[in-house]
Design a protein around this nucleic acid. Structure first.
Length: 153
DNA sequence: GCCAACGTTGGC
DNA sequence: GCCAACGTTGGC
């Protein structure tokens, strides 16, 4: 089993939106970055766990935990001209972008803010904290995962 | 709103 | 294949 961190702007899709989704499950659509896509498509497995990270907001940070449901599959928003994620170079026969389904496992009582994450040398290797990093899907080591889970208690 | 950093595009 | 220009991300 692998661990992940996935970013979302809460104005677009927040952890409360996921909580209020049917069966607390949703498509994690709209990823339009090749490295992130490759991680989703090639590395994510059913049952993996992921931190839900709120970005581009007043208090960026990790707000809870979700589970990856099933395998990656093509992201149909890429071939919907009315979607903000439309990509004319993707099609149903030659999909360019992939997504996974996620199910909410836990909303942290206290989210672990970006400011707090930066305090710990144990976490300084996380891509999230590296200068200029913009990857919206990234792996988390088991050590980092355990450490952050304890911070959320 | 600013701006640093990065990814993508497209001309050559 | 190079690289400048451009667009986006995301913290502040």
């Amino acid at each position: 089993m692998r661990y992940w961190l996935m970013k979302s702007e809460p104005d677009v899709f927040s952890i409360d939106n996921l909580k209020n989704s049917p069966r607390r499950t949703a498509h994690w659509d709209g990823v339009r970055n090749y490295l992130a896509r490759n991680l989703i498509r090639d590395q994510m497995r059913d049952g993996d766990l992921a931190f839900f990270y709120h970005s581009s907001c007043a208090t960026p940070g990790i707000t809870g935990i979700m589970e990856i449901i099933g395998a990656a599959h093509p992201d149909p928003t890429a071939w919907d001209p009315n979607s903000p994620y439309f990509d004319p170079k993707s099609s149903a026969t030659a999909p360019r972008w992939y997504m996974v389904d996620v199910r909410l496992r836990q909303v942290f009582k206290n989210s672990v803010t970006l400011t707090e994450l930066r305090k710990y040398p144990q976490l300084e290797q996380m891509p999230l904290l590296r200068r200029g990093n913009r990857l919206s899907v990234m792996p988390v080591t088991p050590q980092e995962w355990d450490f952050i889970e304890k911070l959320a208690e």
